[in-house]
Design a protein around this nucleic acid. Structure first.
Lengths: 340, 340
DNA sequence: TCCTGGCACTCGACTTCCCGGAGTGCCAGT
DNA sequence: ACTGGCACTCCGGGAAGTCGAGTGCCAGGA
């Protein structure tokens, strides 16, 4: 038996009511609140079918129905239109992001904005190095056997690393290396750098090769390995909205998951060029987040994508609103980056 | 009536038991668990006095006693010796911090280590710029009217800011400014820089003064105003240990406070040259943290202090252990910084 | 003077019981 | 195919009762 229009309408009503009230919804209150044009008994029959198909369930016999993860999924995919943001919201976003002075600043403002607008936990990934290009490399001597490498990416990200040199090295040598790495690497996509770095070492005169190799290994680490690590997080206090009711009684696992950068990156970092992505409950393949949903989106100047951002909340969340907000914020941030 | 030795001993026993069991402690179980050499009745009399003096209180009539903030304060000040760390713990600290490669890395490792050892929320302030000196300033042209300012402090901190120039500026001019700011500012304490920056502008030939003024204002912002902002946080999941019992029923206010950098800086940033500092309950002058205690310490190479670190937990915490850990970690971090 | 054992009392935590109400499934009727 | 009716289930919350840990106080003893 397939789901006719009315059954879908019933499912939508259940999701909307449950999200709004946080209480299992019964057939009677459903017909009262929505113009379904049928009696409670009919709705009950529909509900029985929906339950059989796995879209809703009863917490206990003789309680109302609650959407399952599959129910939310169907709702998101077929039953909801993304709400357009109000002009006021658009203006709020613009105003909030306008004052940003700095990449750090942009990211921090964005994450706070997201948390505030969605009233959920927000995560913003810094522009990932693997999708950036090298703008400039700087070498600053610290002592005779140490220097600092500063890498500036075209996305505005700046990474620094201390380089321990194998032996005393003069300032001139450092300047020399600086020139070499810049001519070789400036403007290159991060992904293309490894062979170029290798070439740098190979082309180096024998007596300086050791030093250059040293720099090269740090370069590779900085450019490629540690590449996507940076994240900003805000709004954890929003987890406590709705008491301990959401998240099946304990915030513990959720807070733990939020501390793991690797996990967060998996959640918001795997961005396809496509549009906003919604992961509901089990769909996050992380045990600790079985009771959570994640709405994420890529962002970047124009149509390219340099990083991800998103929010995390209870499966019982306002999907249309959240999706709209995440998408809008992602677009604004992208525009902002495009200006730089 | 003053507090004789036995009464203090009773207070200590109450604090220790309550911290261990999380339950109000009564006279009978007290004498069972500690060798006080007197009967429950006597202990009850002592308790009555302690209560009158405000060091303990009863949650309800006919329940055991619980320490008040004042009780914890007395305990910390007079009744507890700081535990020495076990060699295993010392080794753990050393091993954990040894691999650090970078200031960022040091800070992140430290904050995780602290959270893990104390099983509480840990906060580490990056070395504050106001206590650092300028090591090097770098100017990188981005476009004809934009450049990036990168400031490297002797503590290893790196700050960057975008500078919007008033008009097109050649690469040579940028290099020129770079030379000027470095000769003037390198090696200077941050606090001493404002007049020097002003001098830079004044000494500048008329036609370039505009550009230099622009750079100067960003410099001042970077060096002085935004100076102490950076923080790292870890272990928020530890707030959920002990159920919702700690923090009078709601994590909400605590999580909110933890999101405010300003608040955290107030808590761990105000470091005197002295030793570890303990703030109990109300002593943090922040409403949201009435049920929390903060143990903080300054750190830095040798005896100087460049930043603060600490942990936050329920007032009912293991003070001796926490203090010992915080102090030890602060010292190790200081040593680590001294090496660079 | 200080400590102790004894005793009556208090009061929260836990259990049990009970009841109302919301919600259900099913069935016969339109 | 929908509806009204009906019997049933079961959660939530209040009332009552019990248990036990803990207290304050007092009189007696070192």
């Amino acid at each position: 038996m397939s789901l006719d229009d009315r059954k879908l309408e019933v499912l939508r009503a259940i999701v909307e009511d449950y999200v709004a009230t946080q209480e299992p919804v019964g057939s009677k209150s459903l017909v009262e609140r929505h113009q379904l044009g049928v009696s409670p008994a009919t709705v009950r029959n529909d509900m029985a079918v929906l339950e059989e198909e796995g879209y809703i369930r009863q917490p206990h016999t003789s309680a109302g129905r609650v959407p399952t993860d599959a129910g939310y999924r169907l709702f998101v995919d077929r039953l909801s239109r993304v709400k357009a943001l109000s002009p006021a919201e658009r203006r709020a976003i613009e105003r909030f992001l306008a004052g940003a002075v700095d990449l750090d600043d942009v990211v921090h403002r964005t994450v706070r904005l997201l948390a505030q607008l969605t009233r959920q936990v927000a995560v913003v990934q810094y522009p990932s190095l693997s999708r950036s290009a090298v703008r400039h490399l700087e070498l600053v001597p610290i002592s005779s056997t140490r220097m600092m490498l500063v890498m500036i990416a075209d996305t505005g990200r700046v990474e620094q690393r201390l380089v321990e040199l194998p032996g005393p090295t003069s300032n001139d040598d450092v300047l020399d290396m600086r020139r070499q790495v810049n001519t070789k690497l400036s403007g290159q996509k991060m992904a293309d750098t490894p062979p170029l770095v290798q070439a740098l070492v190979d082309e180096c005169p024998q007596e300086k090769r050791n030093t250059m190799a040293c720099l090269a290994s740090v370069l590779l680490e900085t450019l490629v390995e540690r590449s996507d690590e940076r994240l900003a997080l805000a709004g954890t206090a929003n987890l406590t909205r709705g008491g301990v009711l959401d998240f099946q009684g304990s915030l513990r696992p959720v807070l733990e998951a939020l501390e793991e950068e690797v996990i967060l990156l998996k959640l918001i970092g795997e961005v396809e060029p496509s549009t906003t992505r919604v992961r509901i409950g089990d769909e996050n393949e992380i045990d600790n987040l079985r009771a959570a949903s994640v709405v994420s989106s890529g962002y970047g100047p124009g149509t390219t994508i340099v990083g991800g951002l998103g929010v995390l909340g209870p499966t019982r969340m306002d999907y249309p609103g959240t999706i709209a907000t995440v998408r809008a914020v992602a677009r604004y941030v992208g525009d902002l980056l495009a200006q730089n």
